[in-house]
Amino acid sequence: MQTKKVVSVLLAGVTTLSMAMPVLAANGDPNLVVTPDTLYSTPIEANSSVTLGLMPANAYYQRTGFDSEDAAKSGLKVDSINAGKGKIIENYAYGAKETADGWAGTVTITGAAGQYGPASLHIVNTNNTSAGIDMTVYVESAEDVADATGVTVKVKDCHNDTGMKVDGEDLTVAKAKGNSGNPFSNSEGAAQTYPTAGDALYSLMKEGEISFTQYGGYVSEISDTDGNKLSGYSSEDYTEYYGWYYCVIDGEGSKANIVEGSDIVSASVLPVDDNDTVVWAFGTEDEANNYFDEVLSAK
């Protein structure tokens, strides 16, 4: 599903509006946000590590920072792994760095040998553990990963009655690297070295059935050959979001299952395997989940 994009966009907007307002450091502030140089979805090169920067923020998501280097060094903790256990080594190095917004804590994460794919981590402020954030890291593969074959891709409008409904079967899904026509190729926030659920959408695009745009690894718009074009938007009171959500249904075994992590990380970092079904639905999260359940029950 694509819920992380909504959070990212809202936070970016709030931060921009509040840049000119002075703020004071407060170790226990109610929110935890990234430093400007840290992505919500960050690649780890094969056999390597990545360092994330995080800092406290006030109720308006203005960065306030820790009040000292020592506070920053002890201010973060990886509380849990939401998905992708085994993709990373669960031995984290904590540190600090000074930024234009104050002191930030750092967490260095190392990919596990021989692994590829995403891990979602819940990181908290040790001074206020209700101030937490979900961060995604994805491990790039050290070796060539075979194309996924026999993949089914479904796209459906579940909200606007446009009639958009496109199905593709027995598709081959290749990694983004070296595939210049793929919108995810060389894109920030998108895995390059293994086939993903996002790349599966490109496989349907190559069939001439759809086109799509993406930003930072998240699908923002899908169009069909009938001229329908659906992009994410919020209700006037910002209480509901309508956008593209996805899930992956495992094609292995006698019982179909939703693949771990497809409701947490972006499609552009989640690996897709032979015989998987990748389902894209436009609407609210509830409308999308209802369609996912419908497809799952039919397997």
Rank of each mutant, 00 (worst) to 15 (best):
S8G: 12
S8K: 13
S8D: 15
V9H: 09
V9N: 14
V9A: 12
L10G: 14
L11D: 11
A12T: 13
A12L: 10
A12Q: 14
G13R: 11
V14T: 11
V14K: 14
T15C: 09
T16L: 12
T16N: 08
L17R: 08
L17P: 03
S18L: 12
M19Q: 14
A20T: 12
A20Y: 11
M21D: 14
P22Y: 01
V23C: 09
V23G: 10
L24V: 15
A25E: 11
A25I: 08
A25P: 10
A26E: 13
N27C: 01
G28L: 07
G28C: 09
N31L: 04
N31Y: 02
N31A: 04
L32S: 03
L32E: 02
V33A: 04
V33C: 01
V33S: 03
V34Y: 09
V34I: 10
V34P: 10
V34S: 07
P36G: 02
D37Q: 12
D37H: 08
D37I: 05
L39W: 11
Y40M: 12
S41Q: 13
S41Y: 05
S41G: 07
T42R: 00
T42M: 02
T42K: 00
T42L: 00
P43C: 07
P43W: 01
A46D: 00
N47A: 05
N47Y: 04
N47E: 08
S48E: 05
V50N: 02
V50H: 03
V50D: 05
T51P: 02
T51W: 01
T51V: 06
L52A: 02
L54A: 05
L54D: 06
L54S: 06
M55C: 05
P56W: 05
P56S: 07
A57G: 08
A57H: 01
N58W: 06
N58M: 06
A59N: 13
A59Q: 13
A59S: 15
Y60Q: 15
Q62G: 12
Q62C: 08
T64V: 15
G65H: 00
D67A: 13
S68H: 00
E69H: 02
E69R: 09
D70N: 14
D70E: 15
A71K: 07
A72T: 08
A72L: 05
K73D: 13
K73R: 15
K73V: 12
G75V: 08
L76M: 09
K77R: 14
V78I: 06
D79K: 14
I81K: 01
I81V: 14
A83E: 11
A83G: 04
G84A: 02
G84C: 01
G86V: 01
K87C: 06
K87M: 13
I88F: 02
I88V: 13
I88P: 07
E90L: 03
